[in-house]
Each structure stands twice: as structure tokens, then as C-alpha cells.
Design a protein around this nucleic acid. Structure first.
Lengths: 181, 181
DNA sequence: TGACAAAAAACTGTTGACAAAACTCTAAAA
DNA sequence: TTTTAGAGTTTTGTCAACAGTTTTTTGTCA
């Protein structure tokens, strides 16, 4: 089913499943059977297992010992909890980025904002989302706190999922980052 | 070396290694060899691998594909980054806990504070640390944001390590939580 | 019909072996 | 002396099989 190269299987599988989950092709609450997936992808259960651990870290699946993996649920409450945290963390990003930014950061930010506007004008919705995340990512790097950057990266898949669930308020929280320039 | 029961090996191994790393018995930057550790603990490499993934999630080891696992470094800068984030997240905990706390939460908090004081009086240093974490944990639960709770739990091992490294300012950040009562 | 117990099936946990990549050491050439 | 090429070693990645647990099914009794 999915293409496999001479790269690492676990990461490829995690990537593949990640996309499936974010796009809602796998139902929340659904069980993931190692053996079935292994056969489907033409690999053994080892890499599947490791991929599931990666997805657990990104909070896309929940692993319960001896009773397998399930796609995590994204309730309205969960989205609120997530945004409550993102709001807090991005406000920190904005403050630190404002302190530590360089000319190079600013130039990057301007390019990124341009890209967002272009996508908006063109009505390119997927591109718009990606541009928003790119923008956030640049801010994160400018904040010069790699741990914070990493934590937000880990939350990105959850955030993308939440966006799929609630398309309306998605910009509110990232907007915090605007204080940056 | 380490005791193994009919429970899950990966979690036990992760627990075991976690303690070793936090207590500084394994050097930062040190390589962890799967085969050596497997023989040492009398298990195969499978569970070792899964344990390493758990430790990666807790940021105690860094996994680099095809070149193994290393204990993460805890530089002064890293500790600052960590506390910068903890400060932010615990301020959120305090606010939400203040909003959502129940009588039961308050009673628990009071007991926990008592325990901290007792340990301080007795000069029970390890107990004091544990009491502080218990206290933080109760606050986290009272905040009624399970995602936030989980994120802080994931950070706990790193926090404990940072405490080992800098014993002086450890209370500063958790102190945020005091606004709670 | 419904509850319960035993048997069967399905699934995860663990292991040992093999393949492939990364690293180390040696030796020859510039 | 330093650099480079290659053989040999070490270590991680992947697989297939087996063991033990959990879940489902089947069958019996009230």
C-alpha cells in the first residue's frame, strides 16, 4: 500500500498514519491492529510498533499495555484545553521572539506573511494552513528556546487535527504571535 | 541486574533507566548500547528499544536513526529554557485551578502543604522533593485540563534532573502555584 | 431467555536470527 | 606526516516465530 524505501520504516509509517489520522480517514476511537496494518503495508510488526510510539508522542494514538492502540478522540473540550495551552505558549514565543529576533528573522517573517496573504488572495486553503504553520515555526525559532520549539512541534499534529474539527477560531491563537513585528 | 516480573518489560526498563539518569548515574552524552543493556538486564533488544522511545518522550535520551541513543545533556541554558516554560504553564495551572477548584481539591492541597512542611521540619530532603511534586500534581488535576496535566507529567523527569543540577532556584517556579489558595 | 463457565480465537509481548548501515582499524599512497 | 581506501567489527534495523493475555464464541444450566 504505502511506499517503502531504504529509509527508516518507522518514521515513514508514522508519517503515513499521521496524515491519515489528521485528515480523518481513520476514525477517532478506532483500534489499530498491528498485524493487519503490518500486512497492509508489507512490513513486519516491529516497525509498526515503533511508529505507534511516535504517534503516541504526538498524541494521535493512545497506547494501552496489552490491549493495543486506539486513535485518540478530539472532543470540543479537548480542543479548548489545547488552545488554552497554545495561547499560553505562543504568548511566551512572542515575548521571547521580540527580545531575541535578528534582522534575518524579520526578513523571514515578512516573507512568510507575504506567503500567507498570497494564499488568502488565491483562495488556496491548504496552502494557507501550511503558511500559517510555517509562520508559527519561524517565530518559534526566533524565540531561541529549542525546548519550547520542540514542544510546539509535538503539538502541531494535534493542532492540525483541531483545525479540521473547528475551522472557525483557528487563527485566534496563532494571532498572538503577531505582536512579534 | 534489574528485577523483572510478569509485568511489561518496557515500562519497567524505562522506569529503571529513568531513575539512573535523573540520579546522574548515567552521564549526559553517554551512548546507550541496546545489546549491552539487553544482556545486562537479561532481556532481548525489543523491550529495550521500546523503553528508549519512552525515555525519548520524557526527553531523557535523544534517539538518532541508525546511530543509537544518547543521554541528553542538561546545560544551564537548557534549564533556563525549561523553567521559562514551566513558569508559563504553571501560571496557567494556577489560574485554571483557582477557577475550577472544589472543596475536595482544597482539602487535598492543605494536606499536601502540611506534608511539605513536615518534610522541611524533619530535614527529609528526598521526601521534600516528592512532596513538592505531589503538590504540583494536585494543582494540575484541579486545573481540569488533562492535556496540560499530561504535558507537565512528561516534563517532570526533566524537571527533576534540572533540580539535581541547580538546587537553588527550584522552588521559584513551582511557587507560582501558591496563588492557588 | 439470560447468566455464567469453558474453550477457541485473536492480539500483543518477547525473543533470537539475519541484513544493512555505521564505525574502527590498518595499510598504502601522496 | 597526512589522507584515503578498504577490510573487519560493531551496532542498529527488520523479520518471523513463539508465548502469554485478552477478547470472543460456544455451550450448559438455571
Amino acid at each position: 500500500m504505502a511506499f517503502k524505501a531504504s529509509h527508516n520504516l518507522d518514521e515513514q509509517i508514522a508519517e503515513y498514519l499521521s496524515a491519515q489520522i489528521i485528515q480523518g480517514k481513520l476514525e477517532p476511537g478506532e483500534r489499530i491492529l498491528e498485524a493487519r496494518l503490518a500486512e497492509e503495508l508489507g512490513v513486519s510488526r516491529g516497525p509498526i510498533r515503533e511508529a505507534l510510539r511516535i504517534l503516541e508522542r504526538k498524541r494521535l494514538v493512545k497506547l494501552i499495555p496489552r490491549r493495543g492502540a486506539r486513535i485518540t478522540e478530539v472532543s470540543a473540550a479537548y480542543i479548548e484545553w489545547l488552545y488554552d495551552i497554545l495561547n499560553e505558549l505562543y504568548s511566551l514565543v512572542a515575548r521571547r521572539a521580540a527580545e531575541n529576533r535578528t534582522q534575518k528573522d524579520l526578513a523571514q517573517i515578512r516573507r512568510s506573511v507575504k506567503r500567507i496573504e498570497d494564499c488568502a488572495v488565491r483562495g488556496d486553503v491548504p496552502g494557507y494552513y501550511d503558511a500559517i504553520f510555517e509562520y508559527a515555526s519561524i517565530g518559534q525559532q526566533a524565540a531561541r528556546n529549542p525546548l519550547l520549539d520542540q514542544m510546539l512541534k509535538d503539538l502541531e499534529p494535534s493542532t492540525r487535527r483541531a483545525q479540521f474539527a473547528s475551522l472557525s477560531l483557528r487563527t485566534e491563537d496563532l494571532k498572538q504571535n503577531v505582536a512579534f513585528f
